[in-house]
Simulated assay, not measured.
Amino acid sequence: MLVSDFDFHLPEELIAQQPLPERDASRMLVLDRHTGAFRDDSFRSLPSLLRPGDLLVLNNSRVIPARLYATRYGFIGQIEVLLTQQTAPLEWTALVRPGKKVRVGTTLLFADQLQAEVIAAGEFGERTLRFAPVDDFFARLDRIGHIPLPPYMHRPDDEADRERYQTVYNQQPGSAAAPTAGLHFTPRVLDEVKARGVQIATITLHVGLGTFQPVRVERLDEIRLHTEHYTLPEETARAIQSAQREGRRIVAAGTTTVRTLEHCVRTSLEPHSGETNIFLSPGAEFKLVQALLTNFHLPQSTLLMLVSAFAGRENVLRAYNHAVVERYRFFSYGDCMFIA
């Protein structure tokens, strides 16, 4: 199967550049993955689509202000650094621009007395940085870093993004991009979900290169994702095991949650932390997730392939074409789908 099989026409003006004034005001396209039937709805109807006894699993990762600006020791000129994953207490993988100027051994100087040495180089601007020890690294990031809005948002980040590019239930800092399906939830909607008799649990997957790096091959069987760190907490592990025993539906909020759950069911459903590079494409068996809340994804992206694996490529592309015609808002700050 070819990457180009997952292309669709998307007018530029449908890419949401700003969040809606109210988080839960998004439109929602409801898709029956078994029949391919779909209908227009709104996110505020989500509680009514959930069943008493469902287990709704959320990703509680927090986006860090991961976009930094540096200079090279002994040079002038600005270097853009996007931290993508923490690999050790002082070490991070990152994307740097312009990459040609940042070689192994380069010292990068940031504001607030942060500095880092480049200790390894990869393809497409990927670097590994080792930061000099400082007190409270994340507090310094909060002061000098920028929210890492995706490149299809053609604007700089602003103060409002520090709240709106986070879920209301974020807890664990570490993501370089938001788990965007969760951006629609408000405390009110979560209360309505609980009032329906739905159980809510959380996992953590820190979104990094494995989620948003573009596909650079032609065939799906050539795709290899970067690893991302996840945690399956004890309370969530027990909730999943109980739902499985009792035949209750497991609903995932977002593709990051799907990837974490489907990785864990293939390895261990006991509480643990680890790394995953699972790639779910058409033909993959979903062993745990039975319903999915997700945003609309980029053409030819691995996330669109995951959704197509879950609901069928033809079903998904028909639904996407309808969304384009009906002028749904796309991508991170856009509208959503509920697939069951």
Rank of each mutant, 00 (worst) to 15 (best):
H184N: 08
G247W: 03
V258S: 10
H226I: 01
G197V: 07
R266P: 03
H206N: 15
E218N: 11
L209T: 03
R259W: 01
P233I: 09
T260S: 03
V215G: 01
T204W: 01
V251W: 14
G254L: 05
E235A: 03
E285L: 12
D221L: 11
Q199N: 03
S268P: 02
F279L: 02
I200N: 01
I250P: 13
L232F: 11
Q241D: 11
R219M: 15
L183M: 02
E228R: 10
D191K: 02
T211Q: 07
E235G: 01
T257K: 04
R245K: 09
A201C: 08
V215S: 01
L183C: 02
H226Q: 05
V198F: 14
V258D: 12
V258G: 08
L190V: 07
E275T: 14
T256A: 04
C264H: 00
T260I: 00
E222W: 09
T256M: 00
G283H: 14
C264T: 10
Q241T: 13
F212Y: 10
H184L: 08
R219T: 15
S281W: 13
A284W: 02
Q213P: 01
L261R: 07
R224C: 15
L190T: 03
A237I: 10
S273G: 12
R219W: 15
E218I: 02
T260F: 00
R188I: 05
I223K: 05
P282R: 14
T231A: 15
G182P: 04
H206Q: 12
A195S: 15
G197K: 07
H272Y: 05
K194M: 14
E262T: 08
T211W: 05
T276V: 10
R248F: 14
D221N: 15
L209E: 10
V265T: 11
E235Y: 04
R249A: 12
F286W: 08
F212A: 02
T204E: 00
R216H: 07
A284C: 01
E234V: 14
F279I: 05
R196W: 05
E270R: 03
T227G: 15
N277S: 12
S273L: 10
F212L: 08
G283R: 11
F212K: 10
A195P: 13
F286T: 07
R248P: 12
G247Q: 05
L280Y: 13
F185K: 03
P233S: 13
G182H: 00
Q213T: 04
A181C: 01
Q199V: 04
A237M: 03
A284M: 02
I203W: 07
E228P: 06
E235L: 00
Q199D: 06
Y230W: 06
L261M: 06
